[in-house]
Design a protein around this nucleic acid. Sequence first.
DNA 1: ATCAGTTCTTAAGATATCTTAATAACAAAT
DNA 2: ATTTGTTATTAAGATATCTTAAGAACTGAT
Lengths: 232, 232
Amino acid sequence: MQNILIVDDEKDIVNALKIYLSDPDYRIYEAYDGKQALDIVEKEDIHLVLMDIMMPVMDGITALNKIRENSFVPIILLTAKGEDADKVLGLTVGADDYITKPFNPLEVTARVRSQLRRYLKYGSGNEDAGKITIDGIELDDATKQVLLDGNEIALTPKEYEILKLLMSNPGKVFSPREIYSIIWQEKPYGAENTVAVHIRHLREKLEINPAEPRYIKVIFGQGYKIEKRVYK
Amino acid sequence: MQNILIVDDEKDIVNALKIYLSDPDYRIYEAYDGKQALDIVEKEDIHLVLMDIMMPVMDGITALNKIRENSFVPIILLTAKGEDADKVLGLTVGADDYITKPFNPLEVTARVRSQLRRYLKYGSGNEDAGKITIDGIELDDATKQVLLDGNEIALTPKEYEILKLLMSNPGKVFSPREIYSIIWQEKPYGAENTVAVHIRHLREKLEINPAEPRYIKVIFGQGYKIEKRVYK
DNA sequence: ATCAGTTCTTAAGATATCTTAATAACAAAT
DNA sequence: ATTTGTTATTAAGATATCTTAAGAACTGAT
């Protein structure tokens, strides 16, 4: 028996998902905002969370981060098609998967099963999950290893997370405050400097010449980005 | 060639399943109640059983338990939608999977394939089932024995489980909280130190020099991992 | 009730990482 | 050219994490 929590403020969506996931093996829990979801995750032994991003009281991203504070339960985010994709990107760091509305029922069940399998048996099965490669940089989230032209380089946690954020959204520019909010999970107070220092350290490890970075570029007045592809 | 036994008192169901599973690689056997199923499993070398729960003469649950007395063949139970799901559930302990009627053909074939794969890979007949070896460490999940360079070492249950977790996912980094959640099956409250102590004990038993571990490495700020391979 | 083995807690010291602040270099606007 | 705001650099102090040890609490067996 597996316990699945569905979180969406639209009752119709919750009901549709309940039907897709009707299976004697699944016990379905429901919540209609992030706060309720949090309460249920605290009390019950939830094995999987399906959660909308846009919700009243507490949105999905906030709830996701709160849940992640002391649980590794798989979380699949539900996102509406047009839904402010840019804003959402990068914020979904802690999520295990996401599904865009409108749903394909088969896709929902497949992803749910896949996440449950991964969670219950601790062999993910999918070797390449969480690997990102951009040019000579290869980031493997499972092993937390980063290879630069095939050679492992050692990053500190903050460096690793910043690199992962940038590599997860190649080409997208993140302001220092944005980076700080996402990685540190707190208000970007006195953030610019701190982020700059970490960027510097990253460059020292990644770039041939940190003063003329090939990968981590700065857009003056906007922020940092990692190039999608470096032209040599 | 793989031998699949279909057990259902409704001939139509059996026929439908035969069509779904028509594959030159599968040889299909049929039975119409639990008693017949038992006879066939006794006589033939069956690799997978698909069995209804509600049947005359001998129901699926009873047959399941009888079969389990001396066989580990994968058994997928068939349950009708409304069929007292909750009551049935607790009884299906020995089953490997179940499928609810009405069937989705794709789902049937997928689950059958998945169970067969699991059985052939690790199943009976295979001596090495559940054995993991990484360099000099050999972990046998059947006997719960761990050999280090051929010599048995005694691990406590927690140590064993942590080692098994790490060895099941060589290279993958697990944070102490993650380890705690998985092994203890509860919220990782005050977990860091507890895990650290067990890691220490493991290292004392596994490593030549615990202060410079070859196998169980720490990734600062991230967690622990076991090396895929130790380069000497 | 005692014992041996296991697990948990605590805490100190060692090590690695992060933040801060001060300053320099740079880019854009006037 | 000057000004303003942004980004880069550096190093030292603050903080966090990891290791290790010792002993307390718990468990199951005798």
